[in-house]
Design a protein around this nucleic acid. Sequence first.
DNA 1: ATAGTCAAAATCGTATACATTCTTGGGCGG
DNA 2: CCGCCCAAGAATGTATACGATTTTGACTAT
Lengths: 232, 232
Amino acid sequence: MKQRGERVDAIYAGLRLAILEQVLQPGTKLPEDAIGEQFGASRTVVRRALELLASEELVDIRPNRGAVVAKPSLEEARDLFSVRQDVEQLVIRRLCGNLTPAQVKRLEAQIEAEERAHHEGRPEYIRHAAEFHLVLAEMTGSPLLARYMRQLVGRSALILGLYGRPRWTDCSVQEHRDLVTCLVEGNSERLEHLMHDHLEAVLSRAIDTATRDKDRGIRDLLAPYVDAARSA
Amino acid sequence: MKQRGERVDAIYAGLRLAILEQVLQPGTKLPEDAIGEQFGASRTVVRRALELLASEELVDIRPNRGAVVAKPSLEEARDLFSVRQDVEQLVIRRLCGNLTPAQVKRLEAQIEAEERAHHEGRPEYIRHAAEFHLVLAEMTGSPLLARYMRQLVGRSALILGLYGRPRWTDCSVQEHRDLVTCLVEGNSERLEHLMHDHLEAVLSRAIDTATRDKDRGIRDLLAPYVDAARSA
DNA sequence: ATAGTCAAAATCGTATACATTCTTGGGCGG
DNA sequence: CCGCCCAAGAATGTATACGATTTTGACTAT
């Protein structure tokens, strides 16, 4: 999918990162002119970048109304996570007991980068943690699985930014280590449980709390702002 | 001018059908001017349609060298089929024992359409047979699974056109009936075997014979043409 | 004051023009 | 005769212009 103009890729990558790092939050309008001016390119190029992002469902292009950062509904979020659970199981089933020493090293390096960033309080640890799952998918040797995982991971990040709580990946470093251990040992039964619980902890819990908030309704959510408005 | 997307969709759908029905064979060049003239649209619109097809990997856009109908390698074909095997298993696992009467009716109607077309020798039966799998995926209620299945089915058709033998779906009608029966009964164990064998028959056998041809090398493949050239 | 209407501004959709890159066919030198 | 190089043609990459649609905000009538 990376066979386009250099400039298109630059804008695509820039916007993608900005969205995944929540600099551009869901719902944010993405006018072609403004982006083009920012990157020093014409609307033609920007449009293609936006279309690429739309094909990943990271942005939503509405006819005649412009592009906005995608804002998945809770239903879409649940669908995504359930499919991701299944696909991650496919990945580990293919890898279990089949890792080469070089691959193990690669995974450990990935985890270490994640841990360092986390320890030093740098926010990149989120990206590293997500990348861990992508690396796993790539190690299956199936470009298709890797491609799907890339989309799933990207959209997961978007959703976690929307519905998740701030410290959502605190324990994932140790969990990632355990996953690698089981992959090496070929302990497939425990592995499946680990992965399931890992994703459950990271993903599903986030939208469960979001569901609770949703059920409270808009009135309750706005309650804290009433006083603020009164004192103004 | 007309609504946005109207003409883009027309060109997209037209090209897609032409590719899947092998009117446009893998490797065929798709020049923007020629297509635009044919459909009465400018290159801008054609380009967008081609981008959409590229995101499904039905066409290959090479930088500065134009778009061609995708020509998956044997390796890509094997990857696709193995992932499709897995995804189809996910689909039936979600559906097994959970079909509503309305859904059963829908599936039976689909099979009947396939059978009629097949019986009357119309080539649409191929499209109906492929659609059966897409309908199954849609019945899971997961837009993501349906989306992935749509891509997988489309690309499968492309590959079968490339490597498959003419009469590749002769027995699929009965196999589809059996699948529905097991889905209704909730006979999950037999179901998984049925689906696996069904896909194996349709897909893998095609590329296995293709592999044999490949291994014969180009010299053998060209042998029949030597005499023809000599007598010319 | 409020709701409805409408015109101006902003933004998108498409066409077209120009620049850049690739392909092709012919000529030149070995 | 073969291979290399280069120029002409063709096709893509990008920018820009213009028409169409949506949005906004002000104005009028009730």
